[in-house]
Design a binder for these strands. Structure first.
Lengths: 217, 217
DNA sequence: TGGCAATCTGAATATACATTCATTTATTGA
DNA sequence: TCAATAAATGAATGTATATTCAGATTGCCA
């Protein structure tokens, strides 16, 4: 076995180790999400997460440097996943109304597939500034701003193409985000759940035409 | 001094004491609201509230049986105040669109006058079931349901009078509440604040006519 | 197989607060 | 003024739990 081979094998081993590490890490994140969703950040103990995930308390600290780090990671990783997914789905549409429909659809689909995550997200459990890394709240606000900006772009291009009424994009974007959050919240707290997807046409129609106006193609 | 007079004086004294008690209690609630708003339920200590309100820690327990009780009281008293105020303002209007305009106006006015309270409210900081009294979360959800029901009634009567498009009132009510929450949230987190009231016509127009539809008188 | 390194473990530690209660202080009426 | 009652105080208590770390366990290669 020459040096070259040894190095290749070592890299293979290291890669496998890393994969396994990431799997265990992901498993913890998944379990933690469910517990945080159910009982909130402060209502959840590291001991609970340890027990539920089948690790010892101390082991959690090999994957995350603190409870706060674990919590932040649960949220920020999903936030990025969600944004990526939505932008993908939206980009497949050509027209502005088509993009908006896709956005609502994709947003609701994500809510439905990540119930726990949204329960956490809608709680805005701040967690203090604290040490070093940007506070979670700042990250979440920045993400929200990004998302709003993205929606504004869709609206602005829709106006340019004459598909939407000319108006200030910012309030229009806010209105859409608010409506989606309200429907998502309602679905989250509902005991016997119909699919959230059935609300997509409803939200779309209300957003396009309002409660007074008649259908406009 | 006969017995009658003595009793009257005692009652007068007791009333005065009660008034003073309530004043001190209200002062604590007011201070606590600000601190809870800034740092959240778990980030706030009884010691802080005591110092800020000029009482000793122990004294707080003469007014509230626990930290949780204090927190619940901060929220529930304002929630009821808000509902009462909004219903008053809305009842002065005759038509359904007029009532909706009044509702948005009154809602935003309350947000603006009670910034701290809304910061707390939008956080949905649950607090566990715990002992005896209905959990705060349940109370808040019930209140939300009430509010939605109230909006639905306005919408339904508007349909009956031909002032609004015929449709399911529930999603229409959800949409309005969601839009108001989104605008309120945006105002709360904005650093340099224009008045939230300037958004009233904007929300109203979007809610009535949507982003596509043309003005409908 | 043996021994080294990496990983895991959970009892022990340290800290942070909510709450209590023995004292102190203020208020009242004779 | 003086007891007696009420109210206020904050140091001390008890509890909960995040984090650590010395030792146990596992996986790895010769």
């Amino acid at each position: 076995m020459n040096i070259q081979n040894a190095m290749v094998e070592d890299m293979g081993r290291d890669q496998r180790k890393e994969r396994e590490f990431n799997l265990r890490r992901a498993a913890i994140l998944d379990i933690a999400e469910g517990i945080f969703a159910g009982k909130g950040y402060f209502g959840t103990t590291m001991a609970e997460i340890a027990e539920a995930s089948g690790f010892a308390i101390g082991s959690l600290y090999q994957f995350f440097e603190s409870k706060e780090d674990l919590y932040k990671t649960v949220i920020t990783e999903k936030v990025h996943l969600m944004q990526t997914k939505i932008r993908q789905d939206v980009s497949r549409e050509e027209t502005s109304p088509g993009k908006i429909r896709a956005l609502i659809h994709s947003h609701f689909d994500f809510v439905q597939r990540n119930e726990g995550f949204f329960t956490i997200l809608l709680r805005w459990e701040g967690i203090s500034e604290s040490n070093g890394k940007k506070a979670l709240l700042q990250t979440l606000l920045a993400n929200r701003e990004d998302y709003l900006g993205f929606i504004e772009e869709i609206l602005a291009s829709g106006m340019a193409r004459g598909e939407l009424k000319e108006d200030k994009p910012r309030p229009m974007a806010l209105a859409l985000l608010g409506m989606m959050d309200a429907f998502a919240f309602d679905w989250l707290i509902a005991p016997g759940k119909a699919s959230l997807m059935t609300s997509v046409p409803c939200v779309l129609a209300l957003y396009f035409n309002g409660v007074k106006g008649h259908e406009v193609s």
